[in-house]
Design a protein around this nucleic acid. Structure first.
Length: 424
DNA sequence: TCTGGGGTCCTAGGACCC
DNA sequence: TCTGGGGTCCTAGGACCC
């Protein structure tokens, strides 16, 4: 039998904050989204207080204060760096792996003898904790979906010491009878509702539903989920990262925007970010799309959403071209009088930069700009973001009042240690 | 007053072709 | 005046993930 393991960092962002600030151990910790708008990560203690994932901060302020929950703005420089370290340790033990998200990785365990899998997982878990300091859970099963099930159990029951191995049918069966249908990987809110109508309350119940019924409910993906739960592999480990199909930069604004010029300047930021991401990936885009939207949660205000896109004759990673195209599109879709809350730029339809086809009609090939953007990217990298920027961009304040220091990626923010007293 | 951001895949329906 | 049927491609929107 061949097995797949899922390594999953426990409460990843909260654990990252704790790593550099051990005083937080045992205390409830939450990490907030971009504008400090809602909760995106919670320590076990915070979960126990009943703070849900995605909770809007303003609705939970009282609860957070009452229990002295430690609140942090998100610090992606720190989380990204620690994630890379965790992945490196995993790769050192399990060369055939797939980085699935910032805090999860699948590993191929087909080369590990079955009777040593539990030992292997235990060793890996300890090594990650010792080398990086992040606690993880590991689930093992015959498929990715079963590995996910196992890791949910490993997290739930501390007496398992962070590892659960579905090594026989009896354990699989027990696991599927235990796992609520809404916690199955690939079954979200809408599908849960549909399946519950058929009396499906746990993962095991899904196996009783015919493929015909599942399809009839328009849930072709769930047929695969069911197969995977039965031990039939539908998803393999993807060893190399696949090429991205789209790159986006979108934001919810701290305050609603009514002025077109202000909106244009905000959106210029997004175009610039997309350009930088494209160049980092070594790819060029044929298509750019922009959208603007009002606040959906404000039922009392008039609503508006529109998007527009443009297809280039030849693919590009030129920030200026993307930005001016986007500005033209905004002129088409902007309507005065609405309070805009969210906007974004999305580029797609990529070709590798070294496979670019030149077209005869556009003046200047993308390669003509190479030197300019190399300098642009280098300056921003070494001297700080925004050192080089478009005239249209302004300095925008994003609310991040409670961000911890970037301990591991900025010299100036290193954690001071030592026996001498810090001078003022 | 304050409700994340960045992705993927699937489907229905329109446009278009012969 | 009559006004088919089958196919493909594309896009918007929905559902899901972390």
């Amino acid at each position: 039998m061949e097995y797949i393991g899922l390594i999953d960092c426990n409460n990843f962002y909260a654990s990252c904050e704790r790593l550099f600030n051990p005083a937080l151990n045992g205390k409830p910790v939450v990490v907030l989204s971009n504008n400090d708008g809602c909760v995106v990560a919670r320590s076990n203690e915070a979960k126990a207080l009943g703070v849900p994932m995605g909770a809007p901060v303003f609705k939970y302020r009282e609860l957070l204060q009452k229990h002295q929950v430690q609140i942090f703005s998100s610090n992606y420089a720190l989380y990204g760096d620690l994630s890379a370290r965790v992945m490196k340790v995993i790769a050192s033990e399990a060369p055939s792996m797939e980085v699935y998200s910032i805090d999860e990785a699948f590993v191929d365990l087909s080369k590990v003898p079955e009777d040593q899998i539990a030992l292997f997982c235990d060793h890996l878990r300890q090594k990650i904790f010792k080398w990086v300091g992040i606690p993880v859970s590991i689930g093992v099963g015959r498929t990715k979906t079963l590995a996910k099930v196992a890791s949910a159990i490993a997290k739930k029951y501390p007496q398992l010491n962070g590892v659960h191995f579905l090594k026989n049918e009896a354990l699989e069966k027990k696991a599927l009878q235990w796992l609520p249908i809404e916690d199955v990987w690939g079954i979200g809110r809408k599908l849960t509702k549909k399946f519950k109508y058929y009396g499906v309350n746990h993962a095991a119940d899904l196996l009783q539903l015919s493929n015909y019924t599942i399809r009839k409910e328009g849930a072709i993906d769930s047929v695969r989920v069911k197969e995977e739960l039965m031990g039939n592999r539908c998803y393999d480990i993807e060893n190399q990262p696949s090429q991205k199909k789209s790159i986006a930069s979108t934001r919810t604004f701290y305050k609603m925007v009514t002025d077109k010029e202000e909106l244009l300047s905000r959106i210029a930021d997004f175009s610039v970010i997309c350009g930088e991401k494209l160049r980092r990936e070594g790819t060029c885009a044929f298509e750019v799309k922009v959208f603007i939207a009002t606040n959906r949660n404000r039922k009392d205000l008039p609503q508006y959403y529109r998007s527009a896109y443009y297809r280039f004759l030849s693919a590009t990673d030129n920030t200026m071209l993307i930005s001016s195209t986007v500005s033209t599109l905004i002129e088409e879709i902007f309507v005065d009088g609405y309070q805009y809350k969210k906007a974004g730029v999305i580029v797609s339809n990529f070709v590798n930069k070294n496979e670019l086809q030149m077209d005869l009609f556009t003046a200047g090939s993308p390669l003509d700009y190479d030197a300019l953007f190399k300098a642009w990217d280098r300056l921003n990298e070494t001297m700080g973001n925004g050192t080089v920027r478009l005239g249209r961009q302004r300095k925008h304040l994003i609310s991040q009042k409670m961000r911890s220091p970037r301990y591991s990626t900025r010299w100036s923010e290193l954690l001071p240690i030592g026996t001498e007293k810090q001078s003022e």
